[in-house]
């Protein structure tokens, strides 16, 4: 691959939420800025830009990871899912999203997208997590509003509901 010049914008092509998309980025552009300001996917939020708060967590190549700790050019050719992909259709919420709403697992909603993306990935692989496992896994996220208790309840309930449904239909978390 040729050396991408620092001062120029370069085409970045990737699959986002099931669609092929492309836009230009300087090598230094963070994936968060690329998603939000080049692709218009503002559901992914920026909270700290140093990888601690977890607000920008998205699904990168099948696993939850920090968009702010990724360069857009690193993601070239990759596959990404963001919070905008979670609802099965407009006006309907996924099982996980519904559980969050039922349990008041969000207040300002700013950290929520990152937490949802982490859980959406996690619950696919871990159908029956314990509360302790969930706590440890969600240790990678900061929420300043809820005190976490309702988030854990929502996640546990969603896990149970997804687990029950799993054999019959492959539903999205």
């Amino acid at each position: 691959m040729p050396r991408l010049n620092a001062t120029q914008r370069h085409r970045v092509r990737l699959t986002v939420n099931g669609r092929q998309v492309e836009a230009d980025a300087e090598p230094r552009m963070l994936l968060t800025d690329f998603l939000r300001h080049e692709l218009g996917l503002t559901g992914t939020h920026v909270g700290c830009e140093h990888g601690v708060c977890g607000a920008c967590t998205i699904d990168i190549d099948g696993v939850p990871a920090r968009a702010c700790l990724t360069l857009a050019v690193q993601a070239d050719g990759g596959t990404i899912r963001t919070v905008e992909s979670l609802a099965p259709e407009p006006g309907r919420l996924s099982i996980l999203q519904q559980a969050f709403r039922r349990h008041h697992a969000l207040q300002c909603g700013f950290c929520t997208a990152g937490i949802l993306m982490s859980l959406d990935c996690y619950l696919r692989d871990r159908p029956e997590p314990t509360e302790a496992e969930l706590r440890e896994f969600l240790g990678g996220h900061l929420c300043r509003c809820t005190g976490y208790t309702p988030i854990l309840k929502a996640a546990l309930e969603a896990a149970t509901m997804l687990h029950k449904k799993r054999p019959e239909e492959q539903l999205h978390a």
């Binding site: 939850p64 990871a65 700790l69 990678g140 996220h141």
Partner: peptide, 8 residues
């Protein structure tokens, strides 16, 4: 770190 950073 955390699961989300160990993934990368």
């Amino acid at each position: 770190g955390h699961a989300q950073t160990r993934n990368r």
